[in-house]
Amino acid sequence: MLDTMIDIVAGTFMILGCLMSLAAGIGMLRFPDLLSRMHAATKPQVLGLFLLLSALGLELRSWAVIPVLLLAWIVQLLTAPVSAHMVGRAGYRTRHLKRVTLVADELALVVEEAANRENTAHGQKPGSNRTDFID
């Protein structure tokens, strides 16, 4: 009886986890630009992995694997934001973004101000006045 219950819960977790990974994939395809896509790569994917690891923990029925599964998830929690930040930062700096999808861009003001300061201090540099090449 208990075994069947655990099996049912584990099965539900696995299906939900797969759905979350599928959602991440759909997000990759459907979101308009790189910055939006990074959201799909972080949130549903982290929950999807959590659900799959939980299902694994339930099915294996061994306490010894719990720390490994937990460790795998914690490492994912620590690395996913870092990769999102690095890719997003590089994407923003190389202007791989669609400005039309942005309601507000408060970083652009800061960048512009810094560029102006730079220009008045060192004069115009080649390439410093280039415009967005994606949108």
């Binding site: 997000g27 979101f31 308009p32 549903p44 999808t101 942005l102 309601v103």
Partner: peptide, 15 residues
């Protein structure tokens, strides 16, 4: 994010 990916897709706005 799942809802946005499936139903809003390319029309998603951000800031």
């Amino acid at each position: 994010v799942m809802y946005l990916a499936v139903f809003r897709g390319p029309k998603t706005k951000s800031a």
